[in-house]
Simulated scan of single mutants.
Amino acid sequence: MPPASDEVDRIVDAWSRERPDLDFAPLQVLSRVGRLSKHLERARRAAFDAAGLEPWEFDVLSALRRAGSPSQLSPKALLQQTLVSSGTMTNRIDRLVQRSLVERRADPGDGRGILVVMTRLGRERVDGAIRLLLDEEAALLAGLSPADQERLAGLLRQLSLGFDGAPEVEAPET
Rank of each mutant, 00 (worst) to 15 (best):
E103S: 02
T88G: 04
S85N: 02
V102Y: 02
T90K: 13
R105C: 03
P70S: 12
K76P: 00
E103I: 04
S71F: 11
Q72F: 05
L83W: 10
E103G: 02
S100M: 06
V84T: 13
G109H: 10
Q81A: 14
R104S: 09
I93F: 08
L96N: 03
R105G: 01
N91A: 15
S74W: 00
R105V: 14
Q80N: 15
Q81K: 15
R92T: 02
A77I: 04
R99G: 03
G87Y: 11
V84W: 00
R95Y: 00
T82F: 09
R99H: 10
R95P: 00
R104F: 03
E103W: 03
E103N: 05
P75Y: 02
I93P: 05
T90L: 12
S71G: 12
V84G: 01
D94L: 04
L96E: 04
Q72S: 08
G87R: 14
R92K: 13
P108S: 01
L83P: 04
T90N: 13
R99F: 02
A77F: 02
I93D: 06
M89Q: 11
S85A: 14
T90Y: 11
M89G: 11
G87L: 15
A106W: 01
L101C: 10
G109L: 13
K76M: 07
V102M: 09
G87H: 12
L78P: 02
R99C: 05
Q72V: 06
T88S: 15
R95W: 00
L96A: 06
L96C: 07
R95H: 09
L79V: 11
R105E: 11
R105L: 03
M89Y: 02
V84H: 14
L96R: 08
D94C: 00
L73I: 03
R104T: 05
Q72P: 03
K76N: 09
P75N: 07
Q72L: 07
S86W: 08
S71V: 06
L73R: 04
E103R: 11
M89D: 09
P75G: 09
S86G: 05
V97D: 00
D94G: 05
S71Q: 14
G109M: 05
V84K: 08
K76I: 06
R92A: 13
R104I: 08
L78R: 11
V84I: 15
